[in-house]
Amino acid sequence: MSPATRHPSTWSLVLPHRSPAGAVADRLARWTTPEVVADVLQDSGRGLLDQVEGRPGGRDWIGECGGPLGAVLVLAEVDAAASALRSAVAAARSRVLADLVLDHSLVELAAELGVTRQALHKSVRGVRGL
């Protein structure tokens, strides 16, 4: 395994959704490289999922992940990255909605967004004291 495979800063760049990346990086480094994990994350795991589901593809993702156990660990990182993105998007959406509520009524915004006023109120409750 190359020194970069175990180098913490390399893994931190590949796993920005992990803070710190330490234990996860150590587990992944036993099976694969930061480059493979970065490639899997870049395509949101689609290539690896295709191979797991038996669809043909040009790359041996499972082999590059170090086998089935490595593939499971890498897929867990795809899930963790997606979860971190979902959380960040939800927080940003709530902040923007809270700003919009200052200039627009909940009823107007709810109608525009296709949600109930109650659902919109739930989204902005607690943001900036609303």
Rank of each mutant, 00 (worst) to 15 (best):
S19Y: 02
L109F: 01
Q118D: 02
P8L: 04
V101G: 03
L69A: 15
L130I: 13
W31G: 05
E64C: 10
T10D: 04
L109D: 03
L75C: 04
L48F: 11
P20E: 03
L28K: 00
G114W: 03
P68E: 12
V96H: 09
G70I: 00
V52G: 02
A91P: 09
R18S: 05
A111P: 08
L97M: 12
R46L: 14
P3H: 13
S19E: 08
T33W: 03
W11R: 06
V127P: 04
T5P: 03
V78G: 06
P68G: 14
E108Y: 07
T116G: 12
R30G: 10
A38Y: 00
L13N: 13
S12D: 12
R125K: 13
A76V: 00
T33M: 04
R55S: 09
Q42R: 15
W11T: 05
G70L: 05
D26N: 14
V107Y: 09
G126L: 01
A4I: 07
P20Y: 06
R86A: 14
V24C: 00
R55A: 11
L41E: 08
L120F: 04
E53F: 15
P56W: 06
D60H: 10
G57F: 06
A38N: 09
K122Y: 05
E108S: 13
D79K: 07
P8S: 07
H121N: 07
V101K: 01
V37Q: 02
L73A: 12
A80Q: 00
P8Q: 06
V24D: 04
S87C: 11
R27F: 00
P16W: 03
R125L: 12
E35L: 04
R128P: 01
D60P: 03
V115N: 08
L41A: 05
A119Q: 15
L69F: 11
E112L: 08
L28P: 00
L100N: 01
A80G: 05
T32M: 00
G126W: 02
R30F: 04
D50G: 05
G54A: 12
S19D: 10
A29V: 10
G70K: 00
R30P: 00
L15H: 01
A4D: 11
W61K: 03
V78F: 10
S12T: 06
